[in-house]
Computed example of a mutant assay.
Amino acid sequence: MRHAYVDQNICDRSPFCPASRSCKFGAFKLERKGMFQVEISIDKDKCTGCGVCTRYCPHGAIKFNNSTKDVS
């Protein structure tokens, strides 16, 4: 099943991530690492693979995985 994941090498880790706000399924997890730094990940069990978040990510850090393997 297709699901999204965040490429940590591209993501700017902003607490104001517009892609995380675009997900109506609540698949994004934001874990605070500092005042203006968060670790952003996507719960593959909640992600439907709709692709809306990719249109809102200003850095193109959200990618898709078509397998059932966990990509972190």
Rank of each mutant, 00 (worst) to 15 (best):
S72H: 11
I10P: 03
R32Q: 09
D12T: 08
L30E: 09
K63P: 01
C47H: 02
S72N: 13
S22Q: 13
V52W: 00
K33Y: 12
Y56I: 00
A19T: 05
A19V: 08
F64H: 11
F25H: 15
M35V: 11
T54Q: 07
S22I: 10
P58I: 03
F36N: 14
K29H: 04
E39A: 15
K69R: 15
D45I: 01
C23L: 05
E39Q: 08
P18C: 11
K63W: 00
N9H: 14
N65G: 06
G26W: 07
E39G: 04
P15A: 09
P15G: 12
K63R: 10
E39Y: 08
I42P: 01
N66H: 14
S22G: 06
P58F: 05
C23E: 01
S14F: 14
Y5R: 10
R13D: 14
R21N: 07
P18D: 14
K29V: 07
S22P: 15
E31N: 11
R2S: 14
I62M: 02
M1T: 10
T48V: 11
A4P: 02
C53Q: 02
T54L: 12
M1C: 09
A19C: 12
P18M: 12
F28Y: 06
D7Q: 01
P58Y: 15
G26Q: 03
P18G: 11
K69M: 07
D45L: 03
P15Y: 15
S72Y: 12
F28E: 03
R2Y: 11
C23D: 02
C47L: 05
S41Y: 01
F64Y: 08
I62D: 00
G34L: 13
V6W: 03
E39F: 08
V6D: 09
C57M: 09
V71R: 10
V38F: 12
G34Y: 08
G49V: 05
R21V: 08
K69F: 12
I10R: 03
R21C: 09
T48A: 04
D70P: 10
N65C: 14
T68W: 07
S72W: 08
C53P: 03
F25K: 14
I10W: 05
S72G: 15
A61V: 04
P18L: 10
S72D: 08
G60A: 09
V6K: 02
G51I: 01
I62R: 00
V38M: 06
S72C: 10
C11A: 12
C47N: 03
F16Q: 14
S72T: 13
P58A: 07
Q8V: 08
S22L: 06
C11D: 12
F16L: 15
S14V: 04
R32L: 14
K63H: 09
K46F: 04
F28H: 05
V71Y: 12
P15R: 06
E31Y: 11
M35Q: 06
A4D: 02
Q37A: 12
R32N: 15
E39V: 13
I40K: 03
F16H: 15
H59V: 04
G34C: 06
